[in-house]
């Protein structure tokens, strides 16, 4: 026991010494190379003023890097597919858990509509203020988590999640293909996007529509993940 404690102490001190060395090397090497001018960022900022969207991050996520975002929600879909494959039990026996608290039940009934409304607001106003589809989808999933914790027999129907997710994925690709047909670029902005309308709710062409679609997809996938993680151990 004594030997083990001494060994751990020397391990920690050696690790601290190595950390100081590595940090010194980083400090010397990167001292002058960090303060660079962001030329690519400035170019994208100059370009994003043509799209009529007030939030430049939204323009980069949905429009300039729109194809990457399609790939990333595909990664999210594959992760939730793996979780469903591992954890989901189709022959689940419902009920027979311990009753949840009275206060939790009442608060969940009161809070769930507000959380849902807040998530939809974050999703729809993603092109005007900080927020967007990713954040709004996760907020909606946390509302679903509140319902799952409080209620005994609440269960997100599998068919609803499948329909929402399929609809969102297909319409993302479909809007991109319409842009390819009309403007010769995938995800081309074919709806009117006047710069004088910047800051209004209806502005920016297809960008808010695509962010809402991303929000639906992220929300349904996160709800699926949360539900499977929560209900795994209860029906063995």
């Amino acid at each position: 026991m004594n030997l083990k404690r001494k060994l751990a102490l020397s391990d920690i001190s050696g690790f601290a010494l190595a950390s100081v060395l590595v940090l010194t090397i980083f400090n010397v090497i990167l001292q002058n190379s960090l303060l660079t001018q962001n030329s690519a960022g400035n170019a994208l900022l100059a370009l994003s003023s043509h799209e009529g969207v007030a939030n430049a991050v939204t323009t980069v996520v949905v429009y300039f890097r729109g194809f990457d975002t399609l790939g990333e929600i595909a990664v999210l879909f594959i992760a939730s597919l793996g979780i469903g494959l591992i954890l989901e039990n189709p022959h689940a026996k419902q009920g027979k858990k311990e009753e949840s608290n009275f206060m939790l039940k009442t608060a969940a009934k009161l809070l769930f509509p507000i959380i849902l409304l807040f998530g939809i607001y974050i999703m729809v106003y993603g092109h005007l203020s900080p927020g967007g589809g990713f954040q709004g989808g996760v907020i909606i999933a946390s509302g679903v988590l509140l319902l799952l914790i409080s209620s005994n027999n609440f269960h997100m129907p599998h068919k609803l999640i499948a329909i929402l997710e399929t609809f969102a994925g297909i319409s993302y690709v479909f809007i991109g293909l319409i842009g390819l047909l009309l403007l010769d670029t995938f995800l081309g902005n074919f709806l009117p996007h006047d710069i004088s309308q910047m800051g209004m709710l209806f502005s920016g062409g297809i960008i808010p529509i695509i962010y809402i679609i991303v929000g639906i997809k992220v929300g349904s996938e996160m709800s699926f993940i949360v539900q499977n993680l929560l209900q795994r151990g209860e029906h063995d």
């Binding site: 962001n38 994208l44 975002t69 990664v75 979780i83 967007g132 990713f134 499977n228 993680l229």
Partner: peptide, 27 residues
């Protein structure tokens, strides 16, 4: 304005990282 490209990349990376963490936990 600050450079929006790292913001956009990290925004998606956080969500992906959480989903992959959930996958590992389920394993």
């Amino acid at each position: 304005m600050n450079d929006p490209i790292p913001h956009a990349m990290i925004l998606t990376a956080i969500v992906i990282g959480m989903a992959v963490l959930a996958l590992g936990i389920s394993f």
